[in-house]
């Protein structure tokens, strides 16, 4: 059952990502990105991280992607023209992507012990709430990084306010 979920939504995520690259209209690409994020949320949930899944849906597909769509609508971006692409991209891009893929899979396979394994859906059955565990870690062990991050976001908000302010 959980394996079926994993396969369905894994395939959906990859298909959405490919569609994102192949679509010519920006709004279709943005919507494929939403599909990718939603399927990632389901994968997180099937790994037992239900809070992460909900946060992914609410923050990424619910808020950030809505703004993407919003901006595309306001700018009235048209269809992009298809070009053959530069030679450098073909010469460097494909081998580079293959190299990164090989490197990552080598690291994951050789460091399998150290990274640990997880059971697909193994945590779905018992009803521990990982929200309380996340918040305990966040507010004791990781308090400083957490607060520093919030100050960082505050700075970004202040920057946005300064930029958007009317000229006197």
């Amino acid at each position: 059952m959980q394996l079926a979920l994993f396969i369905i939504f894994g395939v959906l995520a990859v298909a959405g990502a490919l569609n994102l690259l192949l679509q010519r209209h920006p709004i279709n690409s943005a919507l494929s990105l939403v599909v990718v994020m939603m399927s990632l949320a389901v994968l997180y949930w099937s790994l037992g991280a239900e809070f992460l899944a909900a946060a992914q849906v609410i923050v990424y597909s619910g808020a950030i992607m809505v703004f993407f769509v919003f901006v595309i609508m306001l700018l009235n971006a048209g269809e992009e023209e298809r070009t053959t692409g530069s030679r450098a991209a073909y010469l460097v891009g494909f081998p580079g992507a293959a190299a990164i893929f090989c490197l990552l899979s080598f690291v994951f396979l050789s460091e399998r012990r150290a990274l640990g394994t997880t059971n697909i859906g193994g945590y779905l059955n018992h009803l521990t709430s990982n929200i309380s565990e996340i918040s305990t870690v966040l507010f004791t062990k990781l308090l400083l990084p957490f607060e520093v991050t919030s100050v960082l976001i505050l700075v970004a908000i202040l920057g946005a306010v300064v930029l958007a302010r009317k000229e006197q």
Binding site: L31, V34, M38, E50, F51, A54, A55, V57, I58, S61, G62, A63, V66, V69, F70, M73, L127, S129, I131
Partner: peptide, 21 residues
């Protein structure tokens, strides 16, 4: 669900797409 409330909030935020699109 143990995150029932978040599920409702998440679905509401997805519903925005219907109107936007």
């Amino acid at each position: 669900l143990n995150i029932g409330l978040l599920v409702i909030l998440g679905i509401t935020s997805i519903g925005v797409y219907g109107i936007a699109l």
